[in-house]
Lab assay of single mutants.
Amino acid sequence: YETDHQDYCEVCQQGGEIILCDTCPRAYHLVCLDPELDRAPEGKWSCPHCEKE
């Protein structure tokens, strides 16, 4: 299903190369994640907010 994702990072509120959560509309820079990621994850990815739930 399609979600309207943010076009900015949930953490720093800036645009650029962001990865999109497959569960919610949030988006993140790899370096803004904690722990940060070296590269975009393959397959489905859930953001830290969704992982907690």
Rank of each mutant, 00 (worst) to 15 (best):
A27W: 05
G15M: 13
C12R: 00
P48R: 10
E51A: 06
R26C: 02
C9K: 03
P41S: 10
E36T: 07
G16A: 13
S46K: 09
L33C: 13
E42P: 08
Q14C: 11
E2I: 15
S46F: 09
L37Q: 06
L33K: 02
E17A: 10
T3V: 10
E42R: 06
D4V: 14
Q6R: 08
G15W: 09
P48T: 06
Q14M: 11
L20N: 13
D38M: 03
Q6S: 03
E42S: 10
L33A: 09
E36A: 11
V31I: 05
P25L: 04
A27S: 02
P25F: 11
C32R: 00
L33S: 05
H29W: 02
P25R: 06
P48W: 04
W45I: 06
K44F: 08
D38T: 07
T3C: 10
C47T: 00
K52Q: 04
K52F: 04
K44M: 11
C47G: 01
C9I: 02
P35V: 12
Q14G: 08
S46Y: 13
E2S: 14
K52D: 03
V11A: 08
K52N: 11
D38N: 02
Q13S: 11
E17H: 00
L30P: 12
C21A: 01
P25S: 09
Q14E: 11
C50P: 03
T3H: 03
L33T: 06
G43L: 04
C32T: 00
H29G: 01
C32L: 00
A40I: 15
P41D: 04
I18Q: 09
L20C: 12
L20H: 10
E53L: 04
E2C: 14
K44P: 05
R26M: 09
G16M: 06
C24K: 00
A27G: 03
E51K: 07
C12Y: 00
I18D: 10
L30T: 10
W45K: 10
G43W: 04
T23M: 12
T23G: 05
H29L: 01
C24E: 00
D22E: 05
G15N: 10
R39F: 05
D7V: 10
P41A: 09
G43M: 11
I19W: 05
E51V: 06
Q13P: 01
D7W: 01
E42D: 03
I19M: 15
S46I: 13
I19R: 09
D4K: 11
Y1M: 15
A40H: 03
H5N: 15
D34E: 11
C9Y: 01
Y8S: 11
H49R: 08
Q13D: 04
Y28A: 13
P48G: 11
C32H: 07
E36P: 11
A40M: 12
Q14F: 05
C9M: 02
G15F: 15
I18F: 10
C32P: 00
H29D: 02
C9F: 00
D7F: 04
D22A: 04
G15Y: 11
A40K: 07
E10F: 10
D38E: 06
K52W: 03
S46D: 08
P41F: 05
E36I: 08
C9R: 02
R39Q: 07
C12Q: 00
K44G: 13
D34L: 10
P25H: 05
C47D: 02
I19F: 05
C24I: 00
R26I: 03
E17M: 14
C50M: 02
D4M: 15
C12G: 01
E36Y: 03
L37H: 11
K52S: 12
Y28E: 03
D22G: 07
I19K: 14
E42K: 07
C47E: 00
S46G: 11
C21V: 02
C21K: 01
P41N: 11
T23V: 07
H29Q: 00
Q14K: 06
R26K: 13
D34C: 04
V11C: 14
D22W: 11
C32K: 00
E42L: 13
H49L: 08
L37V: 08
E36L: 09
R39C: 06
C9W: 01
W45A: 11
T23H: 08
H5A: 15
L20Q: 08
G16E: 13
E17D: 10
P41I: 10
D34Q: 09
I19C: 07
H29M: 01
G16Y: 12
G16I: 13
C50Y: 01
E17G: 06
E10A: 10
I18R: 09
D22H: 03
R39K: 11
P25Y: 05
D22M: 12
W45S: 06
E36Q: 07
Q13C: 10
T3Y: 13
A27V: 12
C47L: 00
E53A: 05
L20T: 15
E51Q: 02
T3M: 15
K44V: 03
Y28G: 07
C47Q: 01
L33Q: 07
D34N: 07
Q6C: 03
I19E: 13
Q14I: 07
E10S: 13
Y1H: 08
A40Q: 14
Y8W: 09
P48Y: 03
L20W: 06
E42Q: 09
C47V: 01
Q14V: 08
Y8M: 14
D22K: 10
W45N: 12
K52I: 04
H5W: 07
A40Y: 04
K52A: 05
L30E: 08
E42N: 14
E10Y: 14
D22P: 09
W45R: 06
E51S: 07
C47Y: 00
C21N: 00
E53R: 05
H5G: 15
C12H: 00
L37D: 06
Q13F: 12
G15C: 01
P41E: 09
Q14N: 12
L37S: 05
C21W: 01
I18E: 14
C12I: 00
E51M: 03
P41W: 04
E51D: 04
Y8A: 15
V31S: 10
K44N: 03
Q6A: 06
Y8F: 13
L37C: 08
V31M: 11
H5I: 14
C50S: 02
D7I: 10
S46A: 10
Q14P: 00
P41G: 12
D34F: 05
W45G: 04
Q13H: 13
P48K: 09
H29V: 01
C32F: 00
D34W: 01
P35Q: 06
R39D: 08
H49Q: 11
Q6W: 04
E2Q: 15
C21D: 00
G43S: 11
I18K: 08
K52E: 05
R39G: 09
D22F: 04
E10Q: 13
Q14Y: 03
V11Q: 06
P41Q: 10
E51F: 06
R26E: 09
S46M: 07
A40W: 04
L37T: 05
E51R: 06
E53T: 07
T23A: 04
C50E: 02
V31Y: 05
I18G: 09
D7C: 04
K44S: 13
C47R: 01
E10N: 15
C21R: 00
A40S: 06
T23L: 06
E10K: 14
C32E: 02
H49E: 10
C32D: 01
E36S: 04
G16P: 03
E10T: 14
C21Y: 01
D4Q: 13
I18H: 13
V31D: 07
W45P: 02
V11D: 14
E53F: 08
L33F: 03
Q13R: 12
E2D: 15
E17K: 12
P41Y: 08
L30Y: 13
R26S: 13
